[in-house]
């Protein structure tokens, strides 16, 4: 990843409130936040919205240690989605604390990061 791209991403992470608000003002309804760890060691954040019966989204990639602005004060419905991302991926949302699903010391930390979950999980016969 080049510095230029990183620069762009850092601004995207700050920009998120603006873009989120833009979607809401256009009459869209927030569905959910999808986080994904890409092969190149970045997080991809996808904010999905319902726009008149179709799924619309805006997405951006950020470095793993990048802090992202929280939108929970604009829209309380996004709070759980952000806490989930903090818990399962360790995405750093400003002012959002972990501990939604996992128990500290007992569960593996940030289990959905690549190679973290341990165990095979969900082993189904056949």
């Amino acid at each position: 990843m080049t510095t230029e791209e990183t620069q762009l991403d850092r601004s995207a992470a700050v920009d998120v409130r603006q873009r989120f608000k833009g979607f809401l003002d256009a009459g869209s309804r927030f569905i959910g936040l999808v986080v994904r760890e890409s092969e190149d060691g970045t997080f991809e954040l996808i904010y999905a919205f319902d726009q008149g019966g179709k799924v619309a989204d805006f997405r951006f990639s950020i470095p793993l240690d990048q802090e992202v602005d929280s939108v929970a004060d604009l829209y309380p419905g996004a709070m759980t989605a952000e806490r989930e991302a903090v818990d399962l991926f360790g995405v750093r949302f400003k002012g959002v604390r972990p501990g939604l699903f996992l128990v500290e010391g007992k569960s593996p930390a940030e289990p959905l990061r690549k190679g973290r979950a341990g165990g095979k999980g969900g082993d189904v016969p056949g």
């Binding site: 699903f101 996992l102 569960s107 593996p108 289990p111 979950a117 341990g118 165990g119 095979k120 999980g121 969900g122 082993d123 189904v124």
Partner: peptide
């Protein structure tokens, strides 16, 4: 059963 290997 199907969850015996899940991380949590």
């Amino acid at each position: 059963a199907p969850f015996h290997n899940c991380y949590n």
